[in-house]
Design a protein around this nucleic acid. Structure first.
Length: 128
RNA sequence: CCAGACGGCUGGACGGCCGCUGUCCCUGGAAACAGGGGUAGAGGAAAGUCCGGGCUCCACGGGAAUACGGUGCCGGCUAACCGCCGGCGGGGGCGACCCCAGGGACAGUGCCACAGAAAACAAACCCCCCGCGCAAGAGGUACGCUCCCGCGGGGAAGGGCGAAACGGUGCGGUAAAAGCGCACCGCGCCCCUGGCAACAGGGGCGGCAGGGUAAACCCCACCGGGAGCAAGACCGAAUAGGAGCGGCUGCCUUUACCUUUCGGGGUGGAGGCAGGGGCAUUCCCGCCCCGCCGCUCGGGUUGGUCGCGUGAGGCGCGUUGCGAGACGCGUCCCAGAGGAAUGGCCGUCCAUCCUGGCGACAGGGGGACAGAACCCGGCUUACAGGCCGUCUGGCAGA
RNA sequence: GCGGGCGUAGCUCAAUCGGUAGAGCGCCAGGUUGUGGUCUUGGAUGUAGUGGGUUCGAAACCCAUCGCUCGCC
């Protein structure tokens, strides 16, 4: 949680905290799932895979049909996107591919707790 | 006031901070892009994908027939429809109103279980009636008189089975009966009147034609090329201008080579015909491609732009029509993503629910169904709560 | 986007075009056994996914809807 969002916004963009990329190909998701580390929490499941470079982090989002209909899945994914955006602004990560998997609890989880879940999951997965 | 019927509308409001996609402007930059500011940004069902179109590509010369699929009272609306509107007929409801695939059963075929004598073409199980008969049994007035039984004939009223049994009710009639006769109802045909029509009303004739099922096959009328924006077009990149197997391969002409016992034979090439392929099928005439067709293997591609939102468009007014709609004028430009934007957090209010309280109120919960993917017209399904209008029945009052 | 198929007993599946729904496994009870299993005898079991319609009669035919599943691009 940031107490000074305005000061953070004024910082010049550095290469290490550049806007994160997205994972799009099915093969990329499969690679992270099979070779990366898995860190489940109450609100989210994180899969992290270290790359051999220091490029900006790349994010992927997965919400299965089991969670609900299209409206519920959209809402779940958007909350994960927003929580990850705010968190990574204060805690830059580079050289990693991250996949965030939404669960049933993601939708009803208080937003600050959802951010804490992601932070703890990053620590659990050994992401620096 | 209560209960109900129908139609329409709506689908939380405002603000702050941080973000996303498109677009416009400014600044910097050769450009990519970066920064700043403005602006637009999910639905009535965006859903299911059940119909109908636009659009795009493919096929396409004409004709006939068949098949397949769909629709099915009448008239209208519409670009079109299995949609909508207005009527008609049938059914339900005290009523407002609601429901109905609602053409044809003398074109033909099939089916109608169980029960029942009989299930569709005529018949007769019990039965009703008449005539004849006493061999046996019973009663008796001693006779086929009665019961019973047998034979012959008339009949279909009544009983019984069934979902359904060759019209229904009543009167007459008769040995018993029967549309046998009559009245009313139903049915069929003809005529008249009203209506564009479906149909309705009336009159006459016929004594009854003849069961049901076409959401069984079918018949009739009408409609229908195929595929779908992953359509399709362009730019760029990369690979390849492939390999194998199988099928159809016969005749004629010509030519090259080989062979020859000089008759010819074999192999290959070219041309023609046959043949094959091209549309759901067949046929006729015609056209196109010929080495074609099928299968398998191998190789490459996963980028960008367009299509892509000015449209059967929205809103307002007017004219017209019972209505669905039509016409005219004015005005507006109103999402455009691509692992896919339209969000996250907070505050105030509004509707609503729970708890406490007589109450003002206080505390808490909590926003229905649901997310555009080329577009449009319908249908169907899901849906918290709220609003408006018209009408019906009942109660009370004036 | 386009196009198929299937929902029947607790489970797996039947019954050819309409006539009143069965089989195997499982379940329950009795017998056998000291007990259990095995074996044996008997028995129960169905809104036919849901809602309408056609028909005298529907698991079947028609329409709508829900769920599952498969294929093509």
């Amino acid at each position: 949680m940031t107490d000074h969002p305005t000061s953070a916004a004024l910082l010049p963009a550095s290469p290490s905290s550049a806007s994160p990329g997205r994972l799009k190909q099915r093969a990329e998701f499969l690679r992270v799932a099979s070779k990366g580390r898995k860190a489940p929490t109450h609100g989210v499941v994180l899969q992290a895979l270290a790359r051999d470079d220091s490029d900006p982090v790349r994010l992927g989002f997965t919400v299965t049909k089991k969670v609900g209909n299209a409206v519920i899945r959209n809402r779940t994914r958007r909350r994960l996107k927003e929580a990850a955006r705010l968190l990574l602004k204060d805690r830059p990560v580079a050289g990693y591919d991250l996949v965030l998997i939404g669960r049933d609890h993601t939708r009803g989880r208080p937003f600050n707790e959802l951010q804490d879940d992601i932070a703890r999951a990053l620590k659990k997965a050994g992401v620096p």
